[in-house]
Design a binder for these strands. Sequence first.
DNA 1: CAGTGGTCTAGACCACTGG
DNA 2: CAGTGGTCTAGACCACTGC
Lengths: 267, 267
Amino acid sequence: MRHFPPMNNNSPMADSSAAAVSAGVPTPAFSPLYQQIKGLILQSLQSGEWKPAESIPSEMELAARYRVSQGTVRKAIDELASDHLLVRRQGKGTFVATHAEDHVQYRFLKLMPDRGDLDSEGPAQRDIVDCKRSRANADIARALALRTGDAVLQVRRVLSFGNTPTILEDLWLPAAPFKGLTAERLADYHGPMYALFETEFGVRMVRADEKIRAVLPDATQSQLLKVSPSTPLLSVERVAYTYKDTPMELRRGFYSTENHHYRNALS
Amino acid sequence: MRHFPPMNNNSPMADSSAAAVSAGVPTPAFSPLYQQIKGLILQSLQSGEWKPAESIPSEMELAARYRVSQGTVRKAIDELASDHLLVRRQGKGTFVATHAEDHVQYRFLKLMPDRGDLDSEGPAQRDIVDCKRSRANADIARALALRTGDAVLQVRRVLSFGNTPTILEDLWLPAAPFKGLTAERLADYHGPMYALFETEFGVRMVRADEKIRAVLPDATQSQLLKVSPSTPLLSVERVAYTYKDTPMELRRGFYSTENHHYRNALS
DNA sequence: CAGTGGTCTAGACCACTGG
DNA sequence: CAGTGGTCTAGACCACTGC
């Protein structure tokens, strides 16, 4: 079970004494031990050895498993926790992060009511407008790292808060990992879509990039959101990634900002 | 120079043996040593003991000064660095972060060209349209933690990239800290405004909150940005804060998203 | 009470920078 | 080469959770 450092001279412990300058080549890149441990933990997350919401082994156990000190696995876990891949809970353990938790329900949704917060508007109402198989055009394919013409699932839905339709979203998903996803399945599920992806398809969204623009709705869009065609909307194009930076979803959202705004913290 | 922990029983070192349960009151709140050190460093930053772009004392020196181990000040500095208040540079030292650096010029500006990056469009052109003294109305006063009627500076400017006007901004600044700021001063300065605030007024912007909406421009706005009145714009309302969460600027920006988008990373 | 994560220390060695 | 931040270890003790 002992891991070995890549191609550089930074192995720890007993073997750290003599190994230094071996080949004459310039040492390629320095990768500290805790980064390697981080990689190993990441692999276990990816492979499903530890599932969302489950606890992972204690720091002591992991230290023994990887033959490093507790401090080293601690630093690895620290980084994974600040990436929101793990969640530490003092006295209880370290857990695999999940989208299926009340207090982080809307982690990727930055829309906020102008007064109060999303919870104060009651549970979001999610209406599936459409869900069909189709083929990726050039744009979709590029975003999802597929080839043009590859099978994708296309979903359209409307999110309403307090009975006011607020978000219209078009989603594209690679068909393969989401085999079996149907309109019924989606309509029957009341909760965050990313939570369903985790439990039903083992796909965990880890990070996302959004590009935001101001646009005018087309006829269909203004109808679905019940706004006039001259009401500008926020266009939010999101690519969401699983582990290893694999794109797994393209989402084009249209947000009504009559009573809401997109909130962003800069630091 | 020795600091003492707040009202709780967590002093380190020699005195950590017997101090535990003293008064019968429930221990108020636990504040680890490194957090206290962080607070002390923050104070020195605030007071101007170490100025932007300068280096702060080495970890060893700080450890001696605060009578704690190097590891403890390290953890304090780590947090300040991840808050972007300090910048660590291996082999050189730890420096006070600044907005006047090439590679972080646009740290708070999330607008990106649809192709390429901001640098590829050449230097931003900043045109001051207006700069005048006025009085805060209720909205402005609330945002800046002032009283209605307090003196404020009001600035209007246009940012152009590659000769295309792209951003129209209205700024409100509390008059007191920015005494002496004039249209000329602004027009003569070519560089990030927050850099000027640092060097000329000792005001360092540390974080900001933005609220984004889609809006239609009024006549003046469409004229200044050279877009038609039916072209939707991104409305970006920012409150920027110095140390201690003191609001120091309210900024209302109108971004043309014809060839640019607001980029945001979710994680 | 045992087990978990959280803090703190002390000391060794490594990688990087600049004179 | 000395000085800086960066890594790693080992061990002690603290705070929190749940049985």
